[in-house]
């Protein structure tokens, strides 16, 4: 029997939807008993959210003054105190999970399976390598605890409707003081979150300036869409870093992805492989983005986008 511990990601008292995606991945492991661990200063509200995820058998909470910010060096020892009772410890493949999970794996002396995109059996998983140019099947040793991160774009969020018991645990732990939180500058604003938005509009280098990039925001707002960007657009300062989509940015799976003035480099495409429909607007008919686009329109974005906005307005 598999007993699975999922580390909840949360911010400002709210559970991140990535947690429900981890539950959905964990429930692919036959006969799994799934627990969610909430580490926070005041875990009650977050735990109540986690308890509603269908498939969760129990929510564990550990309240501690040091848990105000998700510092890997602070979280890891708390997870390690509980890990031995589990066959699997999972976290999302977000910057939170990527930061934390290897710190746990190393202490347990096990390898980590990064970016699980499919579960074959309790110890066999599929994951991407080489920017998604290859998908490998990897096997962790039978009988060894599995530490893995879940590629959130590969799993739907598990539905609500659950009512798992919430249990607070006591852990004997002295929080390290060598790592201190200074501040968080949040981007985003009130647009739909890039990682969960149904529609995403992304802009590339072709926009040419931060000013011109406003066109992408306006178009996105009209569609109630999230906003993404290529690395070139982010590097050039047209868009903030948290909007980067791709191998080293966010991996997303919206129903509709509209790439505007983006060439379609492999590092970008790896971030949108799971999008439902990809639309490309690019003036170069040879741009590689057209090889993956479901609907392509060859044209000047500064003409096409305003025309689209008018037609839809």
């Amino acid at each position: 029997m598999s007993k699975i511990l999922i580390i909840a990601e949360h911010l400002n008292g709210k559970l991140n939807p990535a947690t429900a995606k981890c539950v959905s991945c964990a429930s692919k492991i036959a006969g799994a008993e799934i627990h969610v661990l909430v580490l926070a200063t005041d875990p009650a509200a977050i735990a109540a959210e986690a308890a509603q995820i269908a498939g969760v058998a129990k929510v564990l909470t550990h309240a501690h003054a040091a848990n105000g910010n998700a510092l890997a060096a602070v979280y890891a020892p708390q997870v390690l105190a509980l890990a031995s009772g589990y066959s699997h410890v999972l976290g999302p493949s977000t910057t939170f999970g990527k930061d934390l999970m290897p710190r746990i794996a190393a202490k347990l002396g096990v390898s980590q399976v990064s970016d699980v995109m499919a579960v074959e059996d309790s110890h066999t998983f599929k994951r991407p390598i080489y920017a998604g140019n290859a998908i490998v099947t990897v096997k962790a040793p039978a009988g060894q605890l599995v530490v893995a991160t879940v590629r959130t774009a590969s799993f739907p969020a598990a539905p609500g409707g659950g009512s798992a018991p919430v249990e607070s645990v006591s852990i004997d732990f002295a929080a390290p003081t060598h790592t201190r939180f200074v501040g968080l500058e949040q981007g985003g604003g009130d647009r739909p979150d890039l990682q969960t938005a149904r529609v995403v509009v992304s802009g590339g280098r072709a926009l040419g300036s931060a000013d011109a990039f406003k066109l992408i925001y306006d178009f996105a707002d009209q569609l109630k869409a999230g906003v993404g960007a290529s690395r070139a657009a982010v590097d050039a300062g047209y868009a903030p870093n948290d909007m980067q989509v791709g191998q080293t940015g966010k991996i997303i799976a919206p129903e509709l992805y509209i790439a505007v003035g983006i060439s379609g480099a492999i590092q970008h495409l790896t971030g949108i492989k799971d999008a439902g429909t990809i639309v490309a607007i690019n003036k170069d008919a040879e741009a590689p983005i057209f090889e993956v686009a479901d609907i392509g329109l060859v044209g000047d974005l500064f003409k096409v986008v305003p025309e689209l906005m008018q037609a839809l307005g």
Partner: peptide
């Protein structure tokens, strides 16, 4: 300063 999903986080480490 770290690039995290929600923006930029700053840490101080010994």
């Amino acid at each position: 300063t770290r690039e995290v999903d929600v923006g930029l986080e700053t840490l101080e480490v010994d």
